[in-house]
Design a protein around this nucleic acid. Structure first.
Lengths: 159, 159
DNA sequence: GTGGGTGCAAAGTGTTTGCAAGTGT
DNA sequence: ACACTTGCAAACACTTTGCACCCAC
């Protein structure tokens, strides 16, 4: 169960507004789900989201989780991530950092997020040159960990 | 069925070498599969690969395709791609262009590949600063098409 | 000859959906 | 009231696997 690192109440409001524009309703189950989603900065799977949401409200069912996830991704506040694992992951940090990228450490299995204005600029240049306008972008770097290689373990906070 | 755009015989040799190092064998079914894979530059699904391979050798089964795909990805010559569609796609162009990126056009549904030395450099810098060494990288840009917006259709070769 | 490889069909896994009952607006 | 939502369990779609036979080395 994730620590509610930096609960993003702003994202919650945005999601409410999104529901409004689609004439969709707030229910106790959706409440539990979005509080879980925006109460953590961790990436999660559908299964984890179910478990965590049920801890807040036992009436949340798997079906509702699976029916709510597309709403969250459609709103742009959460993005589906494929890290090459068996399950899909969901990243709730797009409300605050819509252009962030990921480094996935081969050794520690952990994921570090970073932003780069330079990369964004180059992406825009190249896309424009090819006749496109960037809408969204995802960059994943798979890397090995210097510290892990030297000491056989890793003390990085994020690792 | 894909046109054999630029058959990559070099990749075929590399894959044979890869099989050798793992004490695996060349069979007529694997032959048909790798000729299909490296005889196109198109992205494909497991299902398409089965269909195309069976056109070369009717004895290729679905099971063998699914058992061969992990070998191809493990060799590094093919990469699994998630473009947010229902199926996974496989990209056979990593033998020649191990660092290429993708622009996915929202309007035309087509995919354009490009390479950028600059982006690679920045990736290396940032990763190094964070204590990592880049192993592989994947960048996907979702974009809209200028021409499509203006004319309602798109004449780009790649679109 | 032996150990890897194959097709087939059954089993598995994550996700979606039909339905009848429930509920927010 | 009406339309949107829900839980349940069945259905789905894609992928994996056990098995007996086959074949590359």
């Amino acid at each position: 169960m994730p620590v509610a690192a930096k609960p993003n109440t702003n994202a919650k409001e945005k999601f409410l507004a999104f529901l409004g524009t689609k004439n969709l309703r707030m229910t106790s189950q959706r409440q539990a789900i979005i509080e879980t989603v925006f109460g953590t900065e961790e990436h999660f799977t559908a299964d984890q989201l179910l478990e965590w949401s049920r801890a807040r409200d036992r009436s949340v069912s798997r079906a509702t989780v699976y029916r709510t996830l597309p709403l969250l991704t459609e709103s742009g506040l959460v993005r589906e991530m494929d890290f090459g694992k068996d399950h899909k992951y969901y990243d709730p940090n797009y409300a605050d950092h819509p252009n962030h990228n990921h480094i996935i450490c081969q050794d520690c299995e952990k994921i570090v997020e970073f932003e780069s204005e330079k990369i964004s600029q180059i992406e825009n240049e190249i896309s424009h040159r090819l006749g496109f306008e960037v809408k969204t972008q995802r960059l994943q770097i798979t890397a090995s960990c210097d510290e892990f290689k030297k000491r056989g373990r890793c003390n990085k906070k994020a690792c």
